[in-house]
Structures are given as C-alpha cells and as structure tokens.
Amino acid sequence: MTIELRQLRYFLAVAEENHFGRAAARLHMTQPPLSQTIQALEADLGTPLFQRTRRSVGLTPAGAALLPEARRILQQAAALPELARRAAAGESGTLTLSFVSTADYNVLPPLLREFRERYPQVRIELREATSDVQLADLMQGRIDAGLLIPPLDEKARTELDYMTVLSEPLVLAAPQGLKALRSKGRAAAASLQAVAGLPLIIFPRRIAPALHDAILGCFRDAGLTPSIGQEAIQMQTIVGLVSAGMGIALVPQSVSNLKRPGVEYRPLAAASATVDTGLAWRRDNASPVLHAFLELLRKKS
C-alpha cells in the first residue's frame, strides 16, 4: 500500500472544511473525483475517515488520529525543495574536520566562528589528530578535511589537494625563572646557546617530520646538538612538561597563547625556521559543504 501526498492533501482539505463541496472548490476541482480519492484512501487504510450525513462531514476516530500526521507529512514535503537547495549550496549537511593540536591556538577558532556564522545549519564534527593519522583518514575517506602540518607524502599528493593556511616562526618555551634568561627582559629574545644544556622536548619525527626537522635545524644553525629528553605528540603535553621543569621546547609562535603557569615564551635571537599549517582534502570529494568551507578559507588567505 502506498499513500500519495495528493491523497493526504485532499483528506486535509475535507477535514478542515468539513464539507466535500467547499473542499473541492478550495482544491480547484469538482467534487466527484475528490470523493473518489477519499474513498480510495479509506479502502487502502481499511477504515472510514469521515462520518458522512446529508448536511455535514465529520472525522471518525481514525480520521482524527490521521489529521495531525497528515499535516506534519505535508509540511515536511513542502520543506524538501528548500532543504535540497540548502544542501546543494553547502548551507546544510555535515563537515568532518580533523586538526593538529597547534591549530587550536591559531587558525581553528576564528575559522570555525566565521563558518558557523555563515552556515549555521551545517553540523561540524571535530577530531583532534596528528598529521599522519589525518592523512590516513583522508586517504580512506573517513574525514572531509584536515588542518595539518605538511608535507604530504608522495602517495597522498596523488589523491589530495593542499592549501597553506598559516606560516609562523618557532619560539622558545622555557621553564619560568631560568638563570640563563633572568638577566634579560621578559619579552627579550633568547639565544639557544643560553639554554643548550637543558633537555629538549619535541614531537616524534614520525608524527610531524617537518616540525621535528625545523626544530633541529634551529639548533644546527646555532652550531648545537640538542639532547632530546622527552617526546610527546600533543602540544599541551609538551608545554606541560616544560612547566614541570623537564626541559625546553621550540613551538610555533601561536602556542604562546597557551598560558601555563611555570612557562615563559621568548622569541629566538637568531632568525628561526617557520612552520606551516595547512588544509588537506580529497581531490574527488564533491561535498558542497566542503567546497563552501574551502571558499571561505580562500577568501581569508
């Protein structure tokens, strides 16, 4: 049994008018085909929907139960064209976005705020993940896009597109009150030579090779070989270990927005390497929501 929207519209007109003649006039049709359609609907449902007399038409208990559901179904059907238009324009749907922990201190909050303001009907699913995990998820189609630290490996470059969103220098994160830094002002630049004796806390190279290599490159340019004391995959953990006096770290400048007791941030006296954060996505992903997100990002860059 299939109930058509046309049958529900006819039923609703008769129920609201309490009269077949007035309902037929409202529907711009003659009464006989209206009556036949209602009779066919009642036959399909196996129960009368109207109590008919010569002077009036009233709903049966079955008709009264059907009335609110018929209204709901017709309202939902009327909303379908607008729903489809919004989905095609990227104004509704779901965006699954992964991000590295460093993005939480720079590009992610303002980007999400502006996207939510423009597309309030879009549901955003956020997942914090390291760059290597994001690349695997993108290749498998488990996420729409990822804010990550490049580079993309050779296989990923054949299937993914990439856009640089931010480039920023590395700064020193050191335990507060170090004697080597005490003689300088709190905002003064620091040299790596002054803290070279302290253990270095760093991302594992397999997790973020570009960031790992940029950090070691700063020491190499200063003629130093650091002693790696700890490795951690979350920026919060790295800064927490610095706060605990476990060593120093070189972090992207925006991480200085992470205020942690016992940690001070200093720019480096020598020119430091820059670290990129960018967005990667599958080249064959035709999601209108993703492309609306990309359009916003391109306008901001």
Rank of each mutant, 00 (worst) to 15 (best):
F50H: 00
A222V: 02
A244L: 13
Q31K: 10
L200Q: 02
Y265W: 06
R157E: 10
L67Y: 10
E17A: 13
T225M: 10
G247L: 01
L268R: 08
L45F: 10
N257L: 13
R123E: 14
S101V: 07
S35W: 11
K259N: 09
L250A: 07
E4H: 14
P33K: 07
L126R: 08
L83P: 05
G146A: 15
P288G: 04
A249I: 09
L27T: 04
Q230K: 15
S101Y: 03
Q121G: 11
T130P: 03
L170E: 04
L74V: 06
M29W: 02
G90L: 03
T274R: 13
K300Y: 12
L80S: 05
S35A: 12
V251C: 09
G217S: 14
L224N: 04
L8M: 08
R206H: 11
R220K: 14
G223W: 04
G177M: 10
T53S: 13
K299C: 05
F203T: 07
S92L: 12
D213G: 06
K259Y: 09
A25M: 13
F11K: 00
G278P: 06
G197D: 08
A78I: 05
P252G: 02
S101Q: 12
A87T: 12
V57M: 09
M139L: 14
Q36D: 10
Q7Y: 04
L83K: 15
A70M: 05
V14M: 11
V251N: 03
R72N: 14
A174H: 02
H212S: 05
S56E: 14
A174D: 00
L290I: 10
N285V: 00
M1K: 13
A62K: 00
E42Q: 14
A196S: 15
E168N: 09
V165L: 13
A62C: 08
G63L: 03
L95S: 01
D276S: 11
L170K: 03
S256C: 08
P150V: 00
Y119H: 15
P120K: 07
G21P: 02
R52S: 02
P48L: 05
L126W: 07
A286E: 14
G93V: 01
A129L: 14
T274H: 12
R123I: 06
T47E: 15
A187F: 09
I73P: 05
A232Q: 09
A84F: 11
Q253W: 07
A280G: 08
A196V: 09
Q253R: 13
L152D: 00
L296M: 15
G141Y: 06
K300T: 14
E91P: 02
A145Q: 06
L66C: 07
D44A: 13
K259R: 15
M1A: 15
E42C: 03
A270N: 12
V195W: 01
I248G: 03
G223D: 07
G177W: 12
V251F: 05
P226C: 08
A269I: 00
A249Q: 03
A77W: 04
S254G: 12
P209K: 01
A214R: 14
P252T: 08
A174G: 04
G177H: 10
T47W: 05
E117H: 11
E264R: 14
E231L: 14
A173F: 04
L211W: 11
I228K: 07
E125R: 15
Y162V: 07
T37N: 11
A280E: 03
R142M: 12
T60G: 02
L108W: 03
V171K: 01
D161G: 11
K179H: 12
